[in-house]
């Protein structure tokens, strides 16, 4: 419908502007704490972008993990490390860096704009008909069934309108424990390793002070 798609476009460009604006503040701002907060703003913009792209679960995970946790971690780091109070000086090779970044951008943009993406406009009629009506047609011909999403039988998953999986959470869950179960477990191990490694790295290297028990008599001050 016309108004939903113009609103989607407005939301998309708004979220992109927020993301890219805050990203520019991150790389140009001298005060590191402001850069950390701008980074959190950029992450929030990316989260909104995921919502616009109909990836709700990924968007919520982005806000929960990046904005809620990693941004606080960065703010803590900035608050602890006192050297950054002087700000972050720009480095000698800035122009070369900018040129390289522009080259990377040109290469990726050229590739993206010149590729012939087979998008959802060209999928087959059966899929198109099923996807735009809000329910999935499972089976062909006389045996078409309309199936509803539920966790009972994850082999029959609803694909709602617009050709994208709006209720993607259960499908992602099934993906994680069926097709990608090895990656899932390895990520768990990786996070445990990161946790233990981080704790070891920040452990205080000074020896522990002697414990004074209460039974020792103390010399009274003279």
């Amino acid at each position: 419908m016309i108004e939903v798609s113009t609103l989607t476009t407005v939301a998309f460009w708004g979220a992109s502007a927020m993301t890219l604006g805050f990203a520019l503040i991150v790389v140009t701002q001298r005060d590191v704490f402001r850069a950390a907060i701008a980074l959190a703003g950029s992450f929030l913009g990316v989260g909104i972008l995921y919502f616009v792209l109909s990836a709700e679960f990924v968007g919520v995970v982005q806000i929960l993990v990046y904005v809620g946790a990693i941004s606080s971690l960065m703010a803590f780091a900035v608050m602890f490390i006192q050297d950054v109070k002087a700000g972050s000086r720009p480095v000698q090779g800035r122009l070369v860096g900018a040129a390289v970044a522009v080259l990377i951008l040109a290469a990726v943009a050229f590739t993206a704009l010149n590729t012939d993406w087979s998008t959802m406009d060209e999928i087959s009629d059966q899929v198109a008909g099923a996807l735009t009506e809000g329910y999935v047609q499972v089976g062909t011909g006389d045996e078409i069934r309309i199936e509803k999403v539920g966790f009972t039988d994850p082999d029959e998953v609803v694909v709602p309108n617009g050709g994208v999986l709006v209720d993607s959470t259960s499908a992602i869950g099934v993906l994680l424990v069926r097709e990608y179960v090895l990656a899932f477990e390895i990520i768990g191990l990786l996070l445990v390793a990161a946790l233990i490694g981080g704790l070891l790295l920040i452990r205080d290297p000074k020896p522990e002070p002697e414990v004074v028990t209460g039974s020792e008599k103390r010399e009274a001050p003279v």
Partner: peptide, 16 residues
Amino acid sequence: NVGVLFIMAVGSLTTL
């Protein structure tokens, strides 16, 4: 569709 997780995510913005 992810309402509960949305509440948790938004609630975690207060730390910042």
